[in-house]
Design a protein around this nucleic acid. Structure first.
Lengths: 236, 236
DNA sequence: ACAAAAGTGTTGGAGATACACCCATGA
DNA sequence: TCATGGGTGTATCTCCAACACTTTTGT
């Protein structure tokens, strides 16, 4: 087995998208191998790539995400670095690496970022120019390339840990949202149910969730009050 | 300014040590530059070094910590990666880098680990063979090399966030400890005071803190009941 | 006897939990 | 008028905060 004297660094983005149908993650298909030897069934992976020599980590995450998915202005946060020496040396990943990397045997350490977007405010089918880019329901995520399942799990943990404390739920919701949408988001992310009345009591205490002079329209039931996030008063 | 086409990866360890006199951090002095050009006043830095080409990140942290400080078996946990392209390019750090690195202009990304040790169970003056290795009171930490002050702050945040939820306080205490020691630790790390009776009520609910059939000896006051950490029952 | 830290209960208030019915809209 | 999700209040309980005195040891 060939061994090289340098190592490479990449970033991988675990972008969570949310809408009323649930929590999804943005995956790309390894189609780019127009080579003789593609893996038997084309695998999916997280959007990620090597960082440039003069580029900050967060800047790299933003650039890579944009290049691969056309997404821009996404909330991104670093959560963990993955450096197992064999993380890109599994058999299943060889073919694709050879087709896309100049030094496919190189060790790669990756820094994981998780991202949050509202699927109602962003294009739910991000420009699929670079090969299939898809929002996959979290439950339907199959085996991914490299250690990307592990990275996805790490991102999910980070999201769960920070959802309540870091005022990030609003990154996953449209600018105007109902309290039921907010509650569903909490239930989906934290994987537990909340009582409607108690949940609303808590929200009322958050001064950064402000009611608008506006209601839902075109729904087959009592229209809900709309709210939005006001980043100005974050007293609590 | 010279630019090179590869980048390097290092690990830096923020090892917190605790005893009854407070919380300390392990720093090493940049003496190794037996060169003509040492920085005016020799700077301190966190123990850290480049990782080897075939080495996992955690393994690297363990190795580097041992090589630089002789500490072994320390609880270590990754908390953040630092990758600003200029983080090792400040003027203050040039001389030392030139004296110790073959490619001093190389960009270095570092992965931060925090470590926890009890100063009563470990040698409080770790073998200072590699140049000054010192436990410095957290309040007395001055300007460090590179971005190590920022890394230290990040480690402190991580420690504060995980102290209560991750059962790690015991890494900072001797195997047998009193409830007053445990309380002081919480107060020092979280930077707030606790009520003695309420604190003890909470500890009684933690089934993994078990009383021993043993008391303090040789103290000038009522000897305290000793406790230890039982990792077996972690029901809560 | 004194100094020094260990040890121990109760009360009041705040926040969490549990729970069921009426309302506004579109079809 | 019916189906659908929106919206609301109260009682209980658990958890947290505040608070002061007695005990054991060494000197």
């Amino acid at each position: 087995m060939l061994k090289n004297e340098t190592l490479h660094l990449s970033v991988d983005c675990v972008v969570f998208g949310y809408d009323d149908s649930g929590l999804k993650v943005l995956l790309i298909n390894q189609k780019e191998a127009n080579n003789e030897e593609v893996g038997q069934n084309p695998m999916s992976q997280l959007p990620g790539d090597l960082i440039l020599i003069d580029e900050g980590l967060e800047a790299a995450a933003e650039r890579v995400l944009f290049e691969l998915t056309q997404l821009k202005g996404v909330y991104l946060k670093q959560f963990h670095a993955y450096g197992d020496p064999n993380r890109v040396k599994q058999l299943k990943d060889r073919a694709w690496l050879r087709s896309v990397r100049t030094q496919p045997e190189q060790r790669v350490i990756t820094v994981g970022y998780f991202g949050l977007v509202s699927l109602q405010d962003h294009d739910p089918q991000p420009a699929s120019f670079a090969g299939g880019v898809e929002w996959i329901d979290l439950q339907n995520v199959g085996p991914l390339a490299f250690d990307h399942n592990e990275i996805l799990d790490g991102a999910m943990d980070a999201l769960q840990n920070q959802l309540e404390s870091h005022h990030i739920s609003f990154e996953l919701l449209p600018k105007k949202f109902t309290l039921s949408q907010l509650q569903s988001l909490y239930e989906v992310v934290l994987e537990k149910k909340f009582d409607k009345r108690n949940f609303r009591k808590n929200v009322k205490r958050m001064s950064h969730v402000v009611p608008l002079d506006e209601k839902q329209q075109g729904v087959m039931h009592k229209p809900a009050q709309l709210f939005s996030f006001n980043p100005d008063h974050l007293d609590d």
